[in-house]
Simulated assay, not measured.
Amino acid sequence: MSARPTPPANRSRTIHYQVPEADKTRLFERTGLEQLRAMAEGRIAAPPISSHIGLEFVAVTDGDVVMTAQPDESHYNPIGSVHGGFFATVLDSVCGCAVHSTLPAGVGYTSLEIKVSFLRPITAETGAVTAHGWVTRRGKSVAFADAEIRDAEGRVLATASSTCLIIYPGGAVPDSRPGPANQ
């Protein structure tokens, strides 16, 4: 009879996060840049997803955002490296926040699509990673952003390009085309 392998040690992880603002209208009283800077400074709660991946702001300017994230074993896939969803979440966050930083008060956004290229694996030993996202073009109804994740040595681990829909109050998109409706 063969010996049974010793099962791996169990580990646990407790996640602490602040309850998101229940009154969504209060979130949109500020410009996107003001909202993100308030989060970066801890004056308003970061989204709960940030707690799951250790996502923190490093820098927030108009159309440009830098964040760090902390991968660990709880993010692993079956082959022993960080799941692609971790990469995608970090890249979607930094692209979306770069777009958000360009928006006036009362205007929101949502991701329409994101394309992620995985260039190198991430493991718990990789340590904190840095994500940089920047707006490449912003129109009235759609914005485009690019992003990358780098390790502490500056190696690019993943890249992304994203398209975001800009959402106006009541769903209206400002129209500056000449015509009877705009005269």
Score class of each variant (00 low, 15 high):
residue 121 P to A: 12
residue 122 I to A: 03
residue 122 I to E: 05
residue 123 T to E: 00
residue 124 A to C: 04
residue 124 A to P: 00
residue 124 A to R: 10
residue 125 E to C: 00
residue 126 T to E: 04
residue 126 T to G: 02
residue 126 T to R: 05
residue 127 G to E: 06
residue 127 G to R: 06
residue 128 A to Q: 12
residue 130 T to E: 11
residue 130 T to G: 02
residue 130 T to Q: 12
residue 130 T to D: 05
residue 131 A to D: 09
residue 131 A to Y: 05
residue 131 A to V: 08
residue 132 H to W: 05
residue 132 H to V: 09
residue 132 H to I: 06
residue 133 G to P: 11
residue 133 G to D: 12
residue 134 W to H: 13
residue 134 W to E: 10
residue 135 V to K: 08
residue 135 V to N: 04
residue 135 V to P: 05
residue 136 T to C: 03
residue 136 T to I: 14
residue 136 T to P: 01
residue 137 R to S: 10
residue 137 R to P: 01
residue 137 R to A: 11
residue 137 R to F: 09
residue 137 R to I: 04
residue 137 R to C: 00
residue 138 R to E: 06
residue 138 R to S: 09
residue 138 R to F: 00
residue 138 R to G: 02
residue 138 R to K: 14
residue 139 G to E: 10
residue 139 G to D: 08
residue 139 G to H: 07
residue 140 K to N: 10
residue 140 K to M: 10
residue 140 K to L: 09
residue 141 S to K: 14
residue 142 V to M: 14
residue 142 V to Y: 03
residue 142 V to A: 07
residue 142 V to F: 04
residue 143 A to S: 14
residue 144 F to S: 10
residue 144 F to N: 13
residue 145 A to R: 13
residue 146 D to C: 03
residue 147 A to W: 08
residue 147 A to S: 15
residue 148 E to C: 07
residue 148 E to A: 11
residue 149 I to M: 15
residue 149 I to C: 01
residue 150 R to G: 03
residue 150 R to V: 15
residue 150 R to T: 15
residue 150 R to N: 09
residue 150 R to I: 13
residue 151 D to N: 15
residue 152 A to G: 07
residue 152 A to F: 02
residue 152 A to K: 14
residue 153 E to A: 14
residue 154 G to P: 06
residue 154 G to M: 09
residue 154 G to S: 08
residue 154 G to E: 08
residue 155 R to V: 01
residue 155 R to M: 04
residue 155 R to Y: 03
residue 155 R to P: 00
residue 156 V to W: 00
residue 156 V to P: 01
residue 156 V to T: 13
residue 156 V to R: 08
residue 157 L to E: 01
residue 157 L to P: 01
residue 157 L to F: 00
residue 157 L to C: 03
residue 157 L to H: 01
residue 157 L to M: 12
residue 158 A to W: 03
residue 158 A to Q: 07
residue 158 A to H: 05
residue 159 T to E: 13
residue 159 T to D: 08
residue 159 T to A: 04
residue 159 T to V: 12
residue 160 A to Q: 09
residue 160 A to P: 10
residue 161 S to T: 15
residue 161 S to K: 11
residue 162 S to F: 09
residue 162 S to Y: 08
residue 162 S to R: 10
residue 162 S to W: 04
residue 163 T to Q: 13
residue 163 T to C: 11
residue 163 T to N: 13
residue 164 C to D: 13
residue 165 L to M: 14
residue 165 L to Q: 12
residue 166 I to A: 00
residue 167 I to A: 03
residue 167 I to F: 01
residue 168 Y to W: 15
residue 168 Y to D: 04
residue 168 Y to N: 09
residue 168 Y to A: 02
residue 168 Y to Q: 06
residue 169 P to C: 01
residue 169 P to M: 02
residue 169 P to H: 02
residue 169 P to A: 00
residue 169 P to W: 03
